[in-house]
């Protein structure tokens, strides 16, 4: 069933990394991303690689799964390599027709590729090891102080988690509507792009109507269960820092500070 699909790229497991507080993982990811931009020599990659490597090993996620996460950015990487390789001025080390490869170009290309790859894998680790709902709860807690500036933090988090619950339901509904219209002779598979776009109207209109109906009913059901915004709300599973989380926090700070000292 379509309902079985998982949103995001969560990889279910019980590893140390999976068990960490979502907030720590979020802060850690931000710190790691910043750290990746703190250095401009190849030496900087060494600690970053060690850091990322240990997280990957601890999480127990297979390398193949992680490599698949790089697929979407493959073309971007290729493009970056070509761009840097041929268009950076410097001492020419190889030449063919109008293409010149310079030493700086080679260096830049390697640097960019490594940095981007580490960036994508690193942020991927957060989504692989944290369920979407943990992530929303974590974000809500981290951004809570913004409430002072009238940012509707709780509302945004609630919206995100409801969206996560309803995406599979709406996907299933889309499938159902498409089939019902196909049964009335609708054709989604042939014709040019305009014709196809037009063919989607009989799907989109009922889908929106249904989404609004569901939203209305859900709002009513939530109100009926005493929902009145984030004020005075408690949690079944409040986020709590464990010893592991504190140790991780210290490690993260150490890592970023350490990276800052790399020339």
């Amino acid at each position: 069933m379509i309902r079985d699909i998982t949103i995001g790229q969560y990889y279910p497991s019980e590893s140390v990394i999976h068990r960490l507080d979502a907030r720590i993982k979020f802060i850690g990811t931000i710190a790691y991303v910043i750290a990746l931009f703190l250095f401009d020599t190849f030496w900087g990659f060494l600690p970053a690689l060690v850091w990322l490597g240990s997280i990957v090993v601890l999480s127990g996620i297979p390398i193949g799964f992680i490599a698949r996460g790089l697929k979407p950015i493959f073309f971007l990487l290729v493009f970056l390599v070509i761009f840097n390789l041929f268009l950076t001025p410097g001492e020419v080390i190889a030449e063919w027709w109008i293409f010149k490869i310079t030493d700086n170009g080679l260096e830049n290309a390697g640097f960019m590729t490594l940095r981007l790859t580490l960036l994508v894998i690193g942020s991927g680790m957060m989504t692989y090891t944290t369920t979407p709902s943990q992530l929303t709860t974590g974000m809500e807690s981290i951004f809570k102080p913004l409430g002072v500036f009238k940012v509707p933090v709780h509302e945004v988090a609630m919206m995100m988690s409801i969206a996560l619950r309803f995406i599979p339901i709406l996907l299933e509904e889309t499938d159902k509507i498409m089939k019902a219209q196909q049964a009335r002779g609708a054709d989604f598979e042939s014709g040019n792009i305009f014709k196809r776009a037009k063919a989607l109207i009989p799907v989109l209109v009922p889908l929106f109507v249904s989404a609004f109906r569901r939203a209305g009913e859900l709002a009513e059901a939530m109100e009926a269960r005493c929902y009145h915004g984030g004020k005075g709300r408690t949690k079944l599973h409040p986020l709590k820092f464990s010893a592991g989380d504190y140790i991780s926090l210290v490690l993260i700070i150490g890592f970023v500070v350490g990276m800052g000292f790399i020339p």
Binding site: K179, A180, Q182, R184, G185, I201, P206, V209, S210
Partner: peptide, 30 residues
């Protein structure tokens, strides 16, 4: 699909046209 017509559950959830007449004519038009 013309010969075997299927009316799905809660078929009213698939109505989409501006008028009743147009909606019913969707099939014949296709």
């Amino acid at each position: 699909r013309q010969n075997v017509g299927i009316v799905f559950q809660y078929p009213e959830h698939q109505l989409f046209e501006a008028t009743v007449g147009k909606d019913v004519a969707f099939g014949p038009n296709n």
